[in-house]
């Protein structure tokens, strides 16, 4: 392994399926948190519901994959309604508590041993993406750009996923400059003021929760298709926190924030991992400082540090507008 491998490995991750999935999830969360000010800490639940609907319908009930994808998206609508009806009347912090609890509840239920036959317990569902794989037009050898390699199916998923992400960015750009988007942003700033102007705030919040949730489900579905597997461990609370990280790096309430955030986040997450791995193996960092086993933890430590610095020196994210932050929101 050489330094070029470190770099190319980081780039592969930055553009790879994982980054694309987190980008999609963050686009959904951006509608919730960035534009409407809904503190949704349960984005992983929307992803999981989407992914599991597809996995279970195809593997357990032997349904058509494309139909299952549609059902997965509708399941997210249902989850948004169930979650939103009681909680959207609450203040923001209560919504955060309710969503994080709901996400955990969804994960425990879908991963429960008693539902092993339907959802496969902790192993989840797998082997359901054959129809998708059969569509793959990329040659089996994979794709190579100099030192950067992608496997054939990965590259296909990347093309589909990133195209979807860009399409969504375009749609969201149009929506957020419309009067509809203005109402959402108004709700983020002060929902009582928006109410006093004759807007049905609850209704708009629900629309926002559904729309962002469906995009979250799309992320979950892409995750299932990319790995041909969905498992409870893919949708734990740290998934939601990573999605928030992606969103904040790029800048909340910015159309391309999630795209930039996902690429940067995965570039560093993997790049740092490879860097410390190589540095300890080459004795660049001597054993008495850390061994190669310990090095695998360094990426999260450094990433945490970078996040802190980002929040201190550039709290608006990459695309954010400093002027907005100069204003005390409350």
């Amino acid at each position: 392994m050489n330094w070029l491998d470190v770099l190319s490995g980081a780039v592969e991750q930055a553009l790879g399926p994982q980054a694309m999935i987190y980008c999609l999830a963050a686009i959904g969360l951006n509608i919730h948190f960035g534009y409407t000010g809904l503190l949704n800490f349960g984005q992983a639940a929307f992803m999981m519901v989407g992914g599991y609907a597809v996995g279970a319908l195809v593997q357990t009930w032997e349904q058509n994959l494309w139909l299952s994808i549609l059902v997965g998206l509708l399941a997210a609508v249902l989850l948004a309604l169930v979650l939103g009806v009681p909680t959207l009347r609450l203040r923001a912090d209560y919504l955060a508590i309710a969503t994080i609890a709901a996400a955990e509840a969804v994960r425990q239920v879908l991963g429960a041993a008693s539902l092993n036959d339907q959802f496969g317990g902790q192993d989840g569902r797998f082997g359901f993406a054959d129809d998708m794989k059969s569509l793959n037009p990329i040659e089996p050898g994979g794709v190579h750009f100099g030192p950067i390699d992608f496997r054939s199916y990965d590259f296909f998923i990347m093309i589909v996923g990133w195209s979807l992400a860009l399409l969504l960015c375009g749609v969201i750009f149009l929506m957020m400059r419309s009067p509809w988007g203005r109402v959402l942003k108004g709700i983020r700033e002060d929902e009582d003021a928006v109410r006093s102007l004759g807007k049905n705030v609850y209704f708009y919040k629900m629309q926002s929760l559904i729309l962002g949730g469906v995009i979250g489900a799309a992320a979950g579905i892409m995750s299932g298709l990319a790995t041909d597997n969905v498992a409870p461990s893919d949708f734990a609370t740290d998934t939601t926190f990573f999605v928030y990280t992606v969103l904040l790096i790029g800048g909340a309430a910015r159309v391309f924030g999630p795209v930039a955030g996902a690429v940067i986040f995965w570039f560093f997450l993997n790049g740092l991992d490879l860097f410390f791995d190589k540095a300890t193996h080459d004795n660049l960092i001597p054993d008495w400082i850390m061994t190669s086993d310990q090095a695998s933890l360094m990426r999260l430590i450094v990433l945490g540090l970078v996040l802190m610095l980002l929040m201190i020196y550039r709290p608006q994210g990459i695309f954010g507008d400093r002027r907005e932050l100069a204003i005390d929101g409350r």
């Binding site: 009067p179 203005r182 109402v183 942003k185 108004g186 700033e189 002060d190 009582d192 807007k199 907005e324």
Partner: peptide
């Protein structure tokens, strides 16, 4: 209750 991070004209249009 002005909507701080919207411009003045956007505040107006919302009404």
């Amino acid at each position: 209750k002005v909507l701080s991070r919207l411009t003045v004209i956007e505040n107006m249009r919302l009404g």
